[in-house]
C-alpha cells in the first residue's frame, strides 16, 4: 500500500519537477528588469528634436526641399524670415541636418515631445536679417 502511494505521488509530481526548477532558476537569475521613471537619456545617435541656430542660417532652402514630410517651412514674416518646424509632421529622418552645409539645423537626442497642446509641437525660429 505504501509503495503504491509513493508511486502515485511521484506520478503527480514527477516530470514537471525538473523543468519547473529550471524555470525558477532562470527567473531568479534575471531578477527585476523594469526601469522606474524618469527614463534615462536617449543614446547619442538618437534622432530627436531639432536644434536650430538662426544666426548661422543662410536661408538657402535646402532643408525645406529635402524634407520628405514637408515639416520645415520658411515664411516671410514682416521684415524677416521665419523658419518653422512642425513636429506633428516630422519623421525624424535627419535629412535636413545632413543637407544643411552650415549646420544651422542639427539633430539632438531630446525625445520629450509629449504635450497637451498641439501648438507646442510647432517650433518657430526667427532669423535675423
Amino acid at each position: 500500500m505504501r509503495a503504491a502511494t509513493v508511486k502515485a505521488l511521484n506520478l503527480a509530481v514527477e516530470g514537471e519537477g525538473n523543468e519547473m526548477f529550471e524555470v525558477i532558476r532562470k527567473i531568479w537569475k534575471t531578477g527585476v528588469v523594469t526601469h522606474k521613471l524618469p527614463l534615462r537619456e536617449a543614446s547619442q545617435r538618437y534622432r530627436g528634436k531639432l536644434d536650430i541656430q538662426p544666426h548661422k542660417c543662410k536661408n538657402c532652402g535646402a532643408c525645406v526641399a529635402a524634407c520628405p514630410a514637408g515639416a520645415i517651412n520658411v515664411a516671410q514674416k514682416g521684415q524677416g524670415q521665419e523658419l518653422s518646424i512642425a513636429y506633428t509632421k516630422c519623421i525624424f529622418c535627419g535629412l535636413c541636418a545632413s543637407v544643411c552645409k552650415v549646420q544651422a539645423v542639427q539633430m539632438t537626442n531630446d525625445y520629450h515631445l509629449a504635450t497637451k497642446n498641439k501648438n507646442d509641437l510647432i517650433q518657430v525660429v526667427r532669423m535675423p536679417q
Partner: peptide, 29 residues
C-alpha cells in the same frame, strides 16, 4: 509567461542596441 517575459527582455536588449548603433529602435533612416 516566462517565455513571453524572457523573449521580451531579449528583444528589448536588441532594440536598445539598434538605438545606440543606428539612432532608431526599429532601424529607420
Amino acid at each position: 509567461a516566462v517565455g513571453v517575459s524572457q523573449g521580451t527582455i531579449l528583444r528589448e536588449e536588441l532594440l536598445m542596441l539598434n538605438e545606440r548603433i543606428a539612432g532608431h529602435r526599429y532601424l529607420r533612416g
